[in-house]
């Protein structure tokens, strides 16, 4: 049975992910990439941008937690990374803290009008660059300065609208603890976004495996199965998480 309308896809360029999403993320969707430390969130997001830039879709990385120079240094260990994409301006890195400084947003908690400035700044950056892909790493760090649930809800709704109108598909990194149960710092973020990609580490007889699951993705049918993820020099590869007859994986 085929759906009435098939939305245009933004292929992530990660074959395993595109396969389970039926070709990619519906274009303009805002997706939460949630996971604890060392699960591959940033690498997944970076590959999404590099693959996009290779296809001629200008890609923007907004870094909050790590200096871009260090990210680029780490990225250069992957064979799929091309420095010429940065030189040509197809792959753009911006450190959000320096933008905060320029805008005078130095306080620990952002006031409502300052939240407006952050949304406008991101939106202006996306529109002026003509960016079709955006990664915000991390949403958690931004929301840490917003605090109130209703303000986070409002921030997310407006940001999502702005990015969708610009035809920009976005991945927002959400840092969570190792215990599953929620996908974001406040618990409101996952309700607003169009999709949730969850990553976590699991153990099998003492060995640690990285696992990924699409929890939610508006605008497309998708697999909800668990997949083991491997960060290889040629990019992210995925294989079904073996269960061996056991619920939740062996």
């Amino acid at each position: 049975m085929s759906p009435a309308t098939v939305l245009e896809r933004c292929a992530t360029g990660i074959d395993g992910l595109d396969n389970i999403l039926g070709g990619g993320i519906p274009r303009g969707n805002m997706v939460l990439v949630a996971g604890s430390v060392g699960t591959g969130k940033t690498t997944l997001c970076l590959e999404f941008l590099v693959r996009g830039a290779e296809r001629g879709e200008r890609s923007l990385f907004l870094s909050v937690t790590e200096a871009s120079s260090k990210l680029i240094q780490n990225l250069s260990t992957f064979e799929f990374f091309r420095t010429d994409l940065i030189e040509q301006g197809e792959l753009v890195f911006v450190d959000l803290p320096s933008v905060y400084d320029r805008l005078g947003l130095g306080k620990e908690e952002l006031a409502p009008e300052e939240i407006d400035i952050v949304i406008r700044t991101i939106s202006d950056l996306v529109r002026s660059l003509g960016a079709k892909r955006l990664v915000l790493d991390s949403l958690t760090s931004v929301c840490y300065r917003i605090r109130k649930d209703e303000q986070i809800r409002d921030f997310m709704l407006r940001l999502g609208q702005e990015l969708n109108e610009a035809g920009c598909t976005s991945l927002l990194v959400s840092e969570i603890g190792p215990t599953p149960g929620r996908y974001s710092l406040h618990g409101v973020e996952e309700a607003i976004v169009d999709g949730v990609i969850l990553l976590w580490n699991t153990r099998r007889l003492g060995d640690i495996l990285r696992v990924v699951q699409i929890v939610k993705m508006r605008g497309t049918a998708h697999s909800r199965a668990q997949y083991v993820l491997e960060l290889t020099p040629i990019g992210i590869l995925m294989a079904p998480h073996l269960k061996g007859g056991l619920e939740g994986g062996a």
Binding site: V228, I234, L237, A239, H241
Partner: peptide, 20 residues
Amino acid sequence: VESPRALEEIMLRVEYLLRK
């Protein structure tokens, strides 16, 4: 691969070499 129990990783390394 760290262990013969990491069966998915074995699959993924085979995949990696096939692509590489």
